[in-house]
Measured scan of single mutants.
Amino acid sequence: KRLSEREFDPDIHCGVIDLDTKKPCTRSLTCKTHSLTQRRAVQGRRKRFDVLLAEHKNKTR
């Protein structure tokens, strides 16, 4: 699936709103397109961004 077609989940996706499409970014939490500050500011996550990021990195090892 293309990035734009993915169902957005704030707990596994970057989530920064794309200015062109007005939709949240569906790249992983480790997205290189958006800064850490931008990704931390995303609302609606179950846990703090840093906790989710650490969990994500542990899963992908």
Results as ranks from 00 to 15, higher is better:
1 K>N: 09
2 R>T: 14
2 R>D: 12
2 R>I: 15
3 L>D: 15
3 L>R: 06
3 L>H: 08
3 L>M: 15
5 E>N: 11
5 E>K: 07
5 E>R: 06
5 E>V: 12
5 E>D: 10
5 E>P: 10
5 E>H: 11
6 R>F: 11
6 R>H: 07
6 R>N: 08
6 R>L: 15
6 R>K: 14
6 R>D: 07
6 R>S: 10
7 E>H: 11
7 E>Y: 10
8 F>D: 01
8 F>C: 03
8 F>Q: 02
8 F>Y: 12
8 F>K: 01
8 F>R: 02
8 F>N: 02
8 F>M: 14
9 D>R: 07
9 D>G: 03
9 D>F: 06
9 D>S: 15
9 D>L: 06
10 P>K: 07
10 P>H: 02
10 P>R: 05
10 P>I: 07
10 P>L: 11
10 P>T: 06
11 D>M: 10
11 D>G: 04
11 D>S: 13
12 I>A: 13
12 I>T: 14
12 I>G: 05
12 I>E: 09
12 I>F: 13
12 I>S: 13
13 H>R: 02
13 H>I: 04
13 H>C: 06
13 H>D: 05
13 H>K: 02
13 H>Q: 06
13 H>L: 02
14 C>K: 00
14 C>G: 00
14 C>D: 01
14 C>M: 01
14 C>I: 00
15 G>T: 01
15 G>F: 03
15 G>D: 01
15 G>K: 00
15 G>V: 01
15 G>H: 03
16 V>W: 03
16 V>I: 02
16 V>F: 02
16 V>P: 00
16 V>N: 00
16 V>H: 03
17 I>K: 10
17 I>T: 14
17 I>R: 13
17 I>Q: 14
18 D>E: 12
18 D>G: 08
18 D>P: 03
18 D>S: 08
18 D>M: 08
18 D>C: 14
19 L>Q: 12
19 L>Y: 08
19 L>V: 09
19 L>R: 11
20 D>Q: 09
20 D>I: 07
20 D>W: 06
21 T>K: 10
21 T>R: 06
21 T>M: 10
21 T>D: 09
21 T>W: 06
22 K>G: 12
22 K>I: 10
22 K>V: 11
22 K>M: 13
22 K>D: 07
22 K>T: 12
22 K>A: 12
22 K>C: 10
22 K>N: 14
23 K>E: 07
23 K>A: 11
23 K>N: 07
24 P>H: 09
24 P>W: 05
24 P>C: 05
24 P>K: 12
24 P>Q: 08
24 P>N: 05
24 P>A: 07
25 C>S: 00
25 C>V: 00
25 C>E: 01
26 T>P: 06
26 T>L: 13
26 T>Q: 13
26 T>E: 08
26 T>C: 11
27 R>E: 14
27 R>H: 11
27 R>F: 13
27 R>K: 13
27 R>D: 13
27 R>Y: 11
27 R>T: 08
28 S>R: 09
28 S>M: 09
28 S>K: 09
28 S>W: 08
28 S>L: 13
30 T>N: 07
31 C>G: 00
31 C>L: 00
31 C>D: 00
31 C>K: 00
31 C>M: 00
32 K>F: 05
32 K>T: 07
32 K>Y: 05
32 K>N: 08
32 K>E: 12
33 T>A: 13
33 T>D: 15
33 T>F: 06
35 S>V: 03
35 S>A: 05
35 S>Y: 02
35 S>Q: 03
35 S>I: 05
36 L>K: 12
36 L>M: 13
36 L>Y: 09
36 L>F: 05
36 L>A: 05
36 L>G: 03
36 L>S: 05
36 L>V: 12
37 T>K: 14
37 T>V: 08
37 T>Q: 13
37 T>D: 14
37 T>Y: 05
38 Q>A: 15
38 Q>V: 03
38 Q>T: 04
38 Q>E: 13
38 Q>W: 02
38 Q>N: 04
39 R>M: 06
39 R>I: 03
39 R>P: 01
40 R>L: 06
40 R>S: 11
40 R>A: 06
40 R>V: 08
41 A>V: 07
41 A>T: 08
41 A>L: 11
41 A>N: 04
41 A>W: 04
41 A>F: 05
41 A>Q: 08
41 A>I: 05
42 V>K: 02
42 V>I: 06
42 V>P: 01
42 V>Q: 01
42 V>R: 01
43 Q>W: 05
43 Q>C: 11
43 Q>P: 08
44 G>L: 03
44 G>Y: 03
44 G>Q: 03
45 R>F: 02
45 R>T: 03
45 R>V: 01
45 R>G: 05
45 R>H: 02
46 R>M: 11
46 R>W: 04
46 R>T: 12
46 R>Y: 10
46 R>D: 05
46 R>A: 11
46 R>N: 08
46 R>K: 10
47 K>Y: 07
47 K>D: 14
47 K>G: 08
47 K>C: 10
47 K>R: 11
47 K>F: 08
47 K>S: 09
47 K>Q: 14
48 R>L: 14
48 R>N: 15
48 R>K: 14
48 R>Y: 05
48 R>A: 15
48 R>W: 07
49 F>H: 03
49 F>V: 06
50 D>H: 03
50 D>T: 04
51 V>P: 04
51 V>I: 11
51 V>F: 07
52 L>F: 02
52 L>H: 04
52 L>T: 03
52 L>R: 02
52 L>Y: 02
52 L>K: 03
53 L>F: 06
53 L>S: 03
53 L>H: 04
53 L>V: 07
53 L>E: 05
54 A>R: 11
54 A>G: 08
56 H>A: 11
56 H>W: 12
56 H>C: 08
56 H>Q: 09
56 H>G: 08
56 H>K: 11
56 H>Y: 10
57 K>Y: 05
57 K>A: 13
57 K>E: 14
57 K>W: 13
57 K>N: 10
57 K>V: 15
58 N>I: 03
58 N>P: 10
58 N>R: 10
58 N>D: 11
59 K>Y: 05
59 K>L: 15
59 K>P: 14
59 K>T: 12
59 K>F: 11
59 K>W: 07
60 T>V: 08
60 T>F: 02
60 T>W: 08
60 T>H: 03
60 T>M: 14
60 T>L: 12
61 R>P: 08
61 R>C: 04
61 R>E: 15
61 R>S: 15
61 R>V: 14
61 R>I: 12
